[in-house]
């Protein structure tokens, strides 16, 4: 057994195995691209949603929140915040606007970002779009 499993066999498993799985991964990636229009809520991906995503990024929201489970674990999951806030973009905007600039003594608090009305709308629309992504029924419940 020991003689059969030589260094060159090990090397061939490395090169052969890696190549095979890289190719398989590329095929699966192609297939995923074919299938995701059914789940990724692209029909609601408007210009305003794109603007919202940019704002989400440029204010590093993912540094505290998770979005579909990825990000930091310091603040609530936001992929379903639209549902959690009673499907109201107004409620989302009101929450973001109401954050005290100097925080809340002793507690976690979201910073005050001083967004304009258009920016607030874009962010809320972005979160509404994310809420519409079909993510295998995740999060498990309304609390995120």
């Amino acid at each position: 057994m020991k003689d059969l499993f030589t260094k060159s066999v090990a090397r061939n498993i490395y090169y052969g195995g890696s190549l095979f799985f890289i190719l398989l991964f590329l095929v699966l990636t192609f297939d995923t691209h074919q299938r995701i229009p059914a789940t990724d809520n692209r029909e609601n991906l408007t210009e305003e949603v794109s603007h919202g995503k940019r704002l989400w990024e440029e204010n590093n929201c993912v540094g505290c929140h998770t979005l579909l489970g990825e990000g930091a674990y310091f603040a609530p999951e936001l992929a379903n915040v639209y549902d959690r806030f009673g499907q109201s973009t107004e409620a989302i905007k009101a929450f973001i606007m109401s954050r005290p600039p100097n925080g809340i003594p002793g507690r976690r608090s979201m910073p005050q970002f001083n967004f304009t009305d258009a920016e607030l709308n874009a962010l809320a629309e972005f979160l509404k779009y994310v809420n519409g992504i079909d993510a295998q029924n995740w999060p498990p419940n309304i609390q995120g």
Binding site: T32, L68, A135, W138
Partner: peptide, 9 residues
């Protein structure tokens, strides 16, 4: 990582 982010099942 592709479980719950909108990728195929």
């Amino acid at each position: 990582h592709y479980f719950f982010m909108g990728a195929p099942s």
